[in-house]
Simulated assay, not measured.
Amino acid sequence: MEKVKAYASEPGVVIFSKSTCYLCCTVTFLFQQLGVATSVHEIDRDPDYREIEKALVKLGCSTTEPAVFIGGKLVGSTNEVMSRHLNGSLLPLVRPYQAQS
């Protein structure tokens, strides 16, 4: 649980992902297109994989991958991220983390 809290509290956009999950790739790609650098933690490559999944569920994730945190706060999974993107509420959350051009 402490490992998950430490990762999730990193500044910016943090994504808990699985290396073989197409939805995880889609969410990561969305943030790339928005010019936002992400910190991606592929939990299936971590020896504490099962404990990380359990910790994410305890933090309120309905599905454990992708689990997206912005500024240390849980945003949710693919459905929540895409819904926010479509209704315009995602961009204000990520604006502080967008690359300056």
Rank of each mutant, 00 (worst) to 15 (best):
P92R: 07
E80C: 11
M82G: 11
P11D: 15
E53K: 15
S9H: 02
V81F: 08
T28S: 11
K58A: 03
T28H: 08
H41C: 05
A55L: 00
C24F: 02
C61D: 02
D48K: 05
G12M: 09
V13K: 10
C61E: 01
T26P: 00
V36M: 06
A6W: 10
L23K: 05
A8T: 09
V4E: 13
G12W: 09
P47A: 14
V40Q: 06
Y22L: 05
K58Q: 10
L59F: 10
V4H: 12
D44A: 04
S39G: 05
D48H: 11
L34M: 09
A8C: 13
A8Q: 07
R50Q: 14
K18S: 07
V57D: 07
R84Y: 08
R45P: 02
E51P: 15
Q32F: 00
C21N: 09
F16P: 00
G60T: 08
L23G: 07
V4A: 10
K18L: 13
F16I: 05
V27I: 12
A55K: 01
K54Y: 06
G12D: 12
M82R: 08
Y22S: 04
S19V: 06
C21M: 00
L30G: 01
T26S: 10
L74C: 00
N79F: 10
C21A: 06
T26R: 05
S17Q: 08
V13P: 08
L91G: 10
L34Q: 09
E65F: 11
V4T: 14
L34W: 06
C25A: 13
K73L: 13
